Amino acid sequence: MPKAIRVHEYGGPEAMSYEDVPTAEPGPGQLRIRQTAIGVNFIDVYFRKGAYKAASLPFTLGKEGAGEVAAIGEGVTGFRVGERVAYAGAVGTYAEEVIVEAAGTVHVPDGVSDETAAAMMLKGLTAQYLLRRTYRVQKGDTILFHAAAGGVGLIATQWAKHLGATVIGTVGSQEKAELARAHGCDHVILYRDEDFAARVKEITKGAGVPVVYDGVGKATFPASLDCLRPFGIFASFGASSGPIDAFDIGILAQKGSLFATRPTLFTHIATRELLDANAAELFDVVKSGAVKIPIHSRARLADAAQVHRDLEARKTTGSTVMIP
Rank of each mutant, 00 (worst) to 15 (best):
L31A: 14
T204L: 09
Q174D: 14
V216Q: 00
S257Q: 06
G62H: 05
G232N: 05
P263V: 03
K287M: 05
V112N: 04
D186V: 02
T36W: 15
H162K: 11
D110Q: 12
G206C: 09
L31M: 12
F237V: 00
V45A: 05
H308F: 06
I99W: 00
R192A: 04
A148M: 10
L154I: 08
A70C: 13
R229N: 11
A117D: 06
Y191D: 08
T126H: 02
I203K: 00
P230E: 10
K201C: 03
D310C: 04
T105L: 01
A197H: 04
Y87C: 03
D141M: 07
A304V: 05
E175D: 14
F145L: 09
L282R: 05
V171C: 03
A149N: 01
V171Q: 00
L190F: 02
Q174G: 15
G73I: 03
A299S: 14
E202A: 14
D248H: 15
D193F: 03
F221M: 08
R298H: 15
G217C: 11
V108A: 04
L61P: 08
V100G: 01
A197K: 06
A148S: 09
M121P: 00
A177G: 07
S240K: 10
H8M: 03
K139Y: 08
R34W: 15
T157Y: 08
F283M: 08
P230G: 08
T93E: 05
R34D: 15
G206V: 11
I43C: 13
R32G: 15
E64D: 15
E273P: 05
G318S: 01
V286D: 07
I143G: 01
S297I: 14
S240A: 09
G111K: 03
S56D: 10
E25G: 06
L57I: 11
T267Q: 08
D110S: 15
P263C: 06
T261A: 10
A55M: 07
G172I: 05
A160W: 03
G75H: 13
I269K: 02
E96C: 06
V171W: 06
R298S: 11
A86N: 13
P243F: 11
H268D: 07
I251H: 05
N41P: 10
A103K: 12
I293S: 00
T320E: 06
Q138Y: 09
K255I: 01
M120A: 12
P22A: 03
R133G: 04
D186L: 01
F42W: 07
G92E: 01
Y94E: 06
V40H: 02
E115I: 00
G169P: 05
V291N: 07
I43T: 09
T170C: 14
D195R: 02
S113P: 00
V108F: 04
F283N: 07
I293Y: 11
V286C: 10
G67L: 03
V307M: 00
A117R: 03
A90V: 12
A156G: 02
V167E: 13
V69H: 09
V211M: 04
T23D: 15
